[in-house]
Nucleic acid binder design. Sequence first.
RNA 1: GGAGGGGUUCCCGAGUGGCCAAAGGGAACAGACUGUAAAUCUGUCGGCGAAGCCUUCGGAGGUUCGAAUCCUCCCCCCUCCA
Length: 404
Amino acid sequence: MNSEFEKQWAAISRGAVDLLPLEEFKSRLKQSIEKNKPLRVKQGFDPTAPDIHLGHTVGIRKLRQFQQLGHKIVLIIGDYTAMVGDPSGRSATRPQLSYDQIMANSETYQKQFFKILDKSVTEIHYNGEWFAKMDFKSILELAAKFTVARILERDDFEKRFKSGTPISIHEFLYPLMQAYDSVAIKADVEIGATEQKFNLLTGREIQQDYGVEPQVILTLPVLVGLDGHQRMSKSIGNYIGIDEPPGEIFGKVMSIPDSLIYSYFELATDIPETHLKEIKAALESGMTNPMNIKKELGQTLVAQYHDAEAARTAREEFERVFSRKEIPEDVPEFDASGYGGRIWIVQLLEDSHIVNSRGEARRLIRGGGVSIDGVKVTDEDLELALKNGQMIKAGKRRHLKIKI
RNA sequence: GGAGGGGUUCCCGAGUGGCCAAAGGGAACAGACUGUAAAUCUGUCGGCGAAGCCUUCGGAGGUUCGAAUCCUCCCCCCUCCA
């Protein structure tokens, strides 16, 4: 029994930043093992965008570990909280989404969750299940359980308040809603990123107010996005979606700053501990070209969300197109048969939607970014004699094959 | 309700009558280089076959030869007081 606890504790605490309150957490786990009663482990996701990205997977992968240890995972799809938008870590109010948009997103969310989690043993709830039924009186009761001073303890609110950035009342409700989710599903454990700590702890207090045994909490590091500074987020656009095509995932991985390589391995992949150590050593020694380690990261992630074959292809494709500057495998064709054999290059770029405007086409040409069959275009007035199979390249990623 | 301060291009932010398609930074895109769609450096960064013209500085009117800049009304945000 004791060794079972040690085993579980090691798995659970790996990679975690905070386990609070620590002793309570341990005893809850012990009890669960002794009584053979799985812990109810909760995490909420607001379907504010159609994609689950690598940042989400940090938590989801932790959930899977719990699941593999036999605990009960309870996913909350925050259809109601999404209408507020979690202000955590944000410096401005989120735009409010329409309900239809939210529902459409939650569809894709569910599909993507179960790329990682085992659907058959996962409990899933929309928080609209309870919030839609709440009347105003119940909302007042909930709101009365917390004070403005307490909520202003939260760093992001405090900053906004002090700097005079608007905070709407409904944003104050967010932590209470998330906390109430824990009441509704009787969570034993709630997990989230470190920036969620306040919300998670609020859950404890509100649960007690409603006579439910308070949850313990587990926080995980925030995954930094492609830009290397801000947290990975859909709204910032610095993310890798797990549903993206192999080439996209691989390419985006290659675009992260070298400094992020290790944390991506640590937080977003399944590689064993021993290999993780090797990677750390390799990065620190400077003996290995970080590019190669990054390629391995890209391949690992593609394999994780597609398969090993796709990963290999993505890598080969990347090496072909970007390292050797050759032509990619699949180039979109453009039917240019209607031009009578000749076309102004700028017009061609615009008509094929490879650029957004003629101005952009001109600029690209001036900057030396356009080539035809490998020959750089220097004249923006060029009247191109069209040939079947001609390859047009605009910038490093946009290719076009002429079809007549 | 009162007093004051604001709303500028994707974002932040400068600009208070012509030199403003609007400084600077960020993002983005491109080029060079390379060890990568890293880093670094350089360039571009509203639209138009490019000449000038058109659209843009919260909205609608107005003053003026000329308005992001001045006036009027309206909308929105912030601060302090009540």
